[in-house]
Nucleic acid binder design. Structure first.
Ligand SMILES: [Mn+2]
Ligand SMILES: [Mn+2]
Ligand SMILES: [Zn+2]
Ligand SMILES: [Zn+2]
Lengths: 140, 140
DNA sequence: TTATAAATGCAACTATGTTGCGCAACTTAG
DNA sequence: CTAAGTTGCGCAACATAGTTGCATTTATAA
């Protein structure tokens, strides 16, 4: 797995550092987007400086290894791209945000609708965040 | 117009204060969501304390007189509901955010897609923000 | 008019994220 | 292998959005 991770960094033309590997590794084992806070509070990552974490996340996202989504709490979450049999997923799907536990999840099976841009405008990206209460939190 | 505004506050069961009237008035003359910053920098509003503005916006939004949308800059924007011949609009539409001028606009003609909730979860609301460059900014 | 409840102002605080800079680590040319 | 150049990291300081507590003022209704 770690070899795989290094491969990703390599392909992206990034230097392989322990911090990047660890974060990529962590996000790969999760199947939901994690916030900076959620990431840095992991044992394996807490030793890094918070600024370093911010920069690593920004870097990984810029080269396309992560996608990021803004929760309705104003906090960014980061997630590795997932692959289906068909094609690479660039994070181009709906996300769900539970306002009880503040956890975000991907809804990869539902993709974003086609959108007619405002007259003369150029669309770069879209984010559809569904806000609600997750199954877990509903059972309490 | 100001009579109309007072009516709205009244119907919502809110006290009529100069601050609330002025802010509602301002947002009614705009047809795009304004941030706290954009609002407080208006001459007519700059005399109020920033905390008061935050609280007024929160209050108006809670009773349903405003809808709020989070921009990809992490800043909330507030907008009055607009009415069409057909029906009341609860802000249930797509929003466009220009990353050049940081201005948000409503796309009321395009409504949000139906979304299949995650198993066992309850959906409360949705926000679809389209990120791009507006017509104005493209011409420079 | 007066009593009550709600709104406002002010100060302090929290939280996320950014910037600048010196030092360390890695890469590459010789 | 070594030195120079480039990139990443740690630390401190900063920027900005939004919140909380509490004293004071204002709106409303008795
Ligand atoms: Mn996702
Ligand atoms: Mn709108
Ligand atoms: Zn939850
Ligand atoms: Zn623009």
């Amino acid at each position: 797995m770690i070899g795989n991770i290094n491969q990703l960094l390599d392909n992206a033309g990034l230097r392989k550092t322990k911090g990047r590997e660890t974060i990529l590794q962590l996000l790969h084992t999760q199947n939901r987007p994690l916030s900076h806070q959620e990431i840095i509070s992991r044992k394996s990552i807490s030793k890094y400086d918070r600024v370093t974490i911010y920069r690593i996340l920004e870097t990984l996202q810029k080269v396309g290894l992560l996608h990021k989504i803004l929760g309705s709490d104003g906090v960014w979450r980061f997630c590795t791209h997932k692959y289906t049999k068909r094609k690479k997923c660039g994070g181009n799907h709906i996300h769900f945000f539970c306002s009880e536990c503040n956890q975000m999840s991907c809804m990869p099976e539902q993709s974003l609708p086609w959108i007619n841009p405002p007259k003369g405008a150029k669309i770069i990206s879209k984010q559809l965040v569904v806000h609600g209460v997750c199954a877990n939190c509903l059972n309490f």
